[in-house]
Design a protein around this nucleic acid. Sequence first.
DNA 1: ATGCGACTAATTGTTAACAATTTTGACTTG
DNA 2: CAAGTCAAAATTGTTAACAATTAGTCGCAT
Lengths: 222, 222
Amino acid sequence: MEITRSDKIYKHLLEAIVSGTIAPGSRLRETDLAQDLDCGRGPLREALQRLESRKLVKKVPHVGAQVVSFDIAELIEIYQLRESLEALACELAAQHMTQDDMEHLQSLLQRHRQFLTEHDGEAYIDQDADLDFHFQIIQCSRNSWLIQLLCDELYHRVRMYRFQTAQYRSRPSKALQEHQHILDALVNRDGELASMLMKRHISAARRALESRLTSALTGEKV
Amino acid sequence: MEITRSDKIYKHLLEAIVSGTIAPGSRLRETDLAQDLDCGRGPLREALQRLESRKLVKKVPHVGAQVVSFDIAELIEIYQLRESLEALACELAAQHMTQDDMEHLQSLLQRHRQFLTEHDGEAYIDQDADLDFHFQIIQCSRNSWLIQLLCDELYHRVRMYRFQTAQYRSRPSKALQEHQHILDALVNRDGELASMLMKRHISAARRALESRLTSALTGEKV
DNA sequence: ATGCGACTAATTGTTAACAATTTTGACTTG
DNA sequence: CAAGTCAAAATTGTTAACAATTAGTCGCAT
């Protein structure tokens, strides 16, 4: 249960924006929204400000707020950050991980493996699974700033992109393999290796985005 | 000139908190503060929320807001992030830097060098100089998320720490040397080297903090 | 004396009215 | 007919009153 009205509205709008229920580029008029959500403009403004700090909404003083429109170039910037930060997360996780953490991650991958063999080809769920795995490792870093940054500020933006482009990884089994290798390294407390593998794992996704960007620029059909 | 009242208050409180004019741990009562700053509680609450998102203020629903109190363990977390992120900034800067950027940085270091020979020992200004250098390189990365993260979210927290501990680097000439080496690598567009040097540069500061933390834990006099 | 509970005061959360600013559109003018 | 200007409408920024929640205090029973 949510404590404040502002909190409730924030979560509602967050989901609506990330999932695309509210289209990118939409203008958000305070009066209208407040009526729809059945609240005053005060809590709504606070929610909008929080969304702005997550870069899901852009506000211009005296003009208004609108949902950000999507931009692959910016997503590449985010992936550059993820490369560095999740590599760091791996190094720290290798140091701080408990036995419980390891077992939890192992069973997570086991479930993913099972799902893949049962529903061969259905990649949709796999995207959430992918994020779950990254999420858990980040938690193991025990660095609260790192955790907040990746899981709270960058995360939603990545999810938004996935909803909008419906761009799901072509070969989920490949990703699962890479995840398993990363976890193996972590279990051996080999932070250096885990970090390198994670960097490559994300780097591959980033390069895929970059090729999409250049082919878009040359007008080629994706 | 500021556009909105909320903006003005935010900047005012930001400086007051970072500089220590408002002591760490202080409770921030909305009614009192609003009267002092001659404004209503609405804009004040928006300013407090922005400060909270920068982790300079902690809010608890229905209880209130207070200035964060300082914690070396958390600062070490921030330095871990800086190590990764500023290394990344160097790699990107090596790619995107213009001739103008290089000249600007060279003249910046030239001024620092001159200041050091003229005011041998005065380390105070050098701290700002240090941050200036890092700041400029980050700008050259051309990654807007990276820039905002380092220059807007982490930066103030680092400044706050410096004000509060009055902990200035023992040998500014050493730092200047390291800065020059980083810049040399960047001028040669050797991103790998620049990145490594930057990582070491920050890592040294982080380790100094860590030894301070352990000696504090063992009750040793610093 | 101490622990529990209701009551009061203080403080934050919320709303609705008011002020300031921007945008829109009609009207004028070259 | 196009461009510029001014007024009105729409929208955001701000304030002040009201509601809800929490913290502190006093009294009471054990």
